[in-house]
């Protein structure tokens, strides 16, 4: 994975983490479709998290850093 992609995805994860603390959503009741807005926000966060992890694992695969070297097989536990 390129350094820039790694930093970008880490930043994306941090943004999602901050967005999780959505205190502004929860004082008054509003609706997004049939769902309360606060709940809909957090469902959206789940979808966004999946997308970020997909990009993360995809970029690792394309850079080849996801491959494991043959284990040396030293010292059994």
């Amino acid at each position: 994975m390129g350094r820039r992609a790694g930093v970008g995805l880490t930043v994306a994860w941090v943004v999602l983490y901050l967005a999780h603390n959505d205190f502004w959503n929860w004082r008054t009741l509003s609706w997004v479709g049939p769902l309360p807005a606060g709940l809909a926000w957090h469902v959206g966060l789940c979808l966004a998290a999946s997308a970020v992890f997909w990009l993360f694992t995809r970029s690792r695969r394309s850079s080849g850093s996801g491959r494991l070297a043959a284990p040396p097989g030293e010292e059994r536990g």
Binding site: H20, G38, L39, L45, A49
Partner: peptide
């Protein structure tokens, strides 16, 4: 209430 989703579910998803 539904806030329990934010406590345990979306935090686990992240």
């Amino acid at each position: 209430g539904v806030g329990v989703f934010s406590l345990m579910a979306s935090s686990s998803a992240l």
